[in-house]
Amino acid sequence: MLRRIVLIATVSAAALVGGVPVAGASPLPLPLPLLSEPADHLTVTVAETGNTRTDGRYELECGPAGGTHPAAEGACERLEQLAQEGQDPFAPVPEDQMCTQQMGGPATARVTGTWQGREVDATFRRTNGCEISRWQTLEPLLPNTRS
């Protein structure tokens, strides 16, 4: 709603200013950064994957892809794909969800920050089939832990 108000106000001001031509003057560019989406920024902390190269704390920026995440571009592409599909990859497994009782290993991850304009604080484990699937949905944001 705020974006729409800013857009209408900006266009209205441009129409008023642009409606009175001044000889030899060129129109000034409008400040468009107000209209752009804020970049996604996530902090990913991974532990006990069994691979010291993937354990650690990473920063991920999307729009454009960057940060210290080892697969930043792929992680941003995956998050964009999930957003386009209308999925919330950070939602916890529903409490009434039936899950297979299997252990996917001791790996854990925590993702915090901002995604799609909202705050994220999600924890991931590989303690049952639902949690393993949830983890795999976020690869390569979270590392592949399969051998």
Rank of each mutant, 00 (worst) to 15 (best):
residue 36 S to Q: 11
residue 36 S to L: 08
residue 37 E to I: 12
residue 37 E to F: 11
residue 41 H to F: 05
residue 43 T to W: 00
residue 44 V to A: 00
residue 44 V to D: 00
residue 45 T to R: 05
residue 47 A to C: 02
residue 48 E to R: 14
residue 49 T to R: 01
residue 49 T to M: 03
residue 50 G to H: 00
residue 51 N to M: 01
residue 51 N to T: 03
residue 52 T to E: 14
residue 52 T to G: 12
residue 53 R to K: 13
residue 55 D to M: 08
residue 55 D to Q: 09
residue 56 G to Y: 02
residue 56 G to D: 01
residue 56 G to V: 00
residue 56 G to A: 00
residue 56 G to M: 01
residue 56 G to Q: 04
residue 57 R to A: 07
residue 57 R to E: 08
residue 58 Y to G: 09
residue 59 E to R: 10
residue 59 E to L: 14
residue 60 L to A: 02
residue 62 C to Q: 02
residue 64 P to G: 06
residue 66 G to P: 05
residue 68 T to L: 04
residue 69 H to F: 08
residue 69 H to N: 13
residue 69 H to K: 13
residue 69 H to M: 13
residue 70 P to G: 02
residue 71 A to R: 14
residue 72 A to K: 02
residue 72 A to S: 02
residue 73 E to C: 09
residue 76 C to E: 03
residue 77 E to P: 10
residue 78 R to V: 13
residue 79 L to Y: 08
residue 80 E to H: 11
residue 81 Q to N: 11
residue 81 Q to P: 10
residue 82 L to N: 10
residue 83 A to G: 12
residue 84 Q to P: 09
residue 84 Q to E: 15
residue 84 Q to C: 11
residue 86 G to S: 04
residue 86 G to L: 04
residue 87 Q to F: 07
residue 88 D to K: 11
residue 89 P to Y: 01
residue 90 F to D: 04
residue 91 A to M: 05
residue 93 V to W: 10
residue 94 P to G: 07
residue 94 P to M: 07
residue 94 P to H: 09
residue 95 E to N: 06
residue 97 Q to T: 15
residue 97 Q to S: 15
residue 98 M to D: 14
residue 100 T to Y: 00
residue 100 T to N: 08
residue 100 T to F: 04
residue 101 Q to P: 00
residue 102 Q to R: 15
residue 105 G to S: 05
residue 105 G to P: 09
residue 106 P to N: 12
residue 108 T to I: 12
residue 108 T to S: 09
residue 110 R to F: 10
residue 110 R to I: 06
residue 112 T to V: 14
residue 113 G to S: 07
residue 114 T to V: 13
residue 115 W to G: 00
residue 115 W to N: 01
residue 115 W to H: 07
residue 117 G to P: 02
residue 118 R to E: 09
residue 119 E to S: 14
residue 120 V to H: 08
